[in-house]
Design a protein around this nucleic acid. Structure first.
Lengths: 253, 253
DNA sequence: GGTATCCAATGGTTTGACAATTAAAAGCCC
DNA sequence: GGGCTTTTAATTGTCAAACCATTGGATACC
């Protein structure tokens, strides 16, 4: 076999660096390394023009890139400007949603992802939850047991319960991914009718079992029970899994 | 309780739509719905200027946004232009990497995510693999058993094995997420020395057990064994988990 | 003290020009 | 005809200089 077989070619594909790309790269690096802290105001566009030696157009294109990446936010007006931000779970959801939508990934794949991630979050929540979070989970599910809830209130409480588990897991990455599965993917899903008391009762009981395991810090049980819940929920005509999606997130952020 | 308690406010926050944002939104919609097919050439910047009535600068900012989102690619030159693309796993990896890096998420969280996703992929692979993929997995692991491999070759084959499992899972979303965990996150990881024959042998055996389960279409076993493998691999000083990271992807794409 | 107005700094947008890049097409030599 | 060099046209890249729109503090007024 030749030495050159399946080796890196002599030269990488030469790609001319566009000026806006270079500037965006510089700023991105200094933001990601933390050299420029979140909340900091970057120099104004006109100052960046001076500092970089580029034209305003190029500077603006660089800023636009960083803005799409969720690394800065820019607002007009005096005391406006370009401030450094962190990409949040919503931008993650947007991105994942576009990935799924543009590739026409079937719902099955998103369901599988959710059925993978959410039980893992339950396990981690069992291992890491605080007493406050445990109490909150119990309170939320208690509220969920009220048969007089209207449909929207039920869905909101349900979503808050799942969201609390994500927080308690102490894993922001998996939490953000779950959020993306739940929110970023179904743009135009029909808000299908589901208000079956039996289903509600089943959800209530399933949540209760998961909370028990979390209370006992039994990660394996929490994971197992959550998986059964999520899978069952899908089998019941996607009520739980889909009706959440047209809702707003529970709290701020 | 008042009717207005915790309800949506009367007006949403009014945010003035910037012109480039509107144009980007229009194009994004028509790309995501498939109205504009992947591979299609969009009108040139100057044509977009005419069509939209905006200035060239605004048009360029819109295009820049879509480019960052991975929805288009633009190249200069005659027969260049703006062509519609699909966001790929690399752009997913970039985005997730920035999310992790900008938030200073500890390595622990990425590891947990990997230990969640990869076993799930093994389970799905067991359920969905083709005969060819099974053969490929066997061949790759056989090659991995060769004690004369240099370090880089071992790592490359190892990576290909994991990658083949991802393909066999038939879940492009989870596959892309695993890829992001493996590639998007560790920018400046040291290529730590690991060339321990014992570790290699352990990896070889663990892979073998996973492949057996996949051959038997035993999803639960595949998942369990893969989880043990991934966790063990981390415990061994992250050899397996990290040394992959400085490598290139195995094949095209 | 409250209200209305002003004002200055910022991003948003336009216009028009020229440079750089690219790959096909044409020309040229043998 | 075959293999080069050169030309050429369409495209993005870049610059410059204005002016508009937005924002929220500062100021003036009552």
């Amino acid at each position: 076999m030749e030495q050159t077989a399946r080796r890196k070619p002599i030269v990488e594909r030469v790609s001319v660096q566009k000026s806006y790309d270079v500037l965006a790269g510089q700023l991105r690096d200094r933001i990601l390394t933390g050299e420029i802290a979140v909340g900091t105001r970057l120099p104004s566009e006109r100052e960046l023009v001076e500092l970089s030696g580029l034209s305003r157009g190029s500077v603006r294109e660089a800023v636009r890139m960083l803005e799409v990446e969720g690394l800065v936010q820019s607002r007009p007006g005096r005391y406006g400007g370009i401030v450094v931000t962190q990409p949040d779970k919503k931008s993650m959801a947007r991105f994942v949603g576009q990935f799924v939508q543009s590739r026409r990934l079937p719902l099955r794949m998103i369901q599988e992802a959710r059925e993978t991630i959410e039980p893992a979050l339950a396990r981690l929540a069992a291992e890491n939850r605080s007493e406050e979070e445990l109490a909150q989970l119990r309170a939320l599910n208690d509220a969920l047991g009220d048969p007089n809830l209207d449909r929207e209130a039920f869905a909101r409480l349900n979503l808050q319960w799942h969201s609390t588990i994500a927080v308690a897991s102490r894993n922001d990455l998996l939490s953000a991914l779950l959020y993306a599965m739940s929110h970023g993917v179904f743009a135009q899903t029909i808000d299908d009718a589901y208000d079956n008391p039996e289903i509600r009762a089943a959800v209530f009981r399933a949540h209760g079992r998961v909370v028990e395991a979390i209370a006992a810090r039994d990660g394996a049980a929490a994971q197992r029970r959550m998986e059964r819940h999520v899978v069952a929920t899908r089998a019941m005509g996607r009520d739980d899994g889909r009706s959440e999606l047209s809702l707003d997130p529970p709290g701020p952020d």
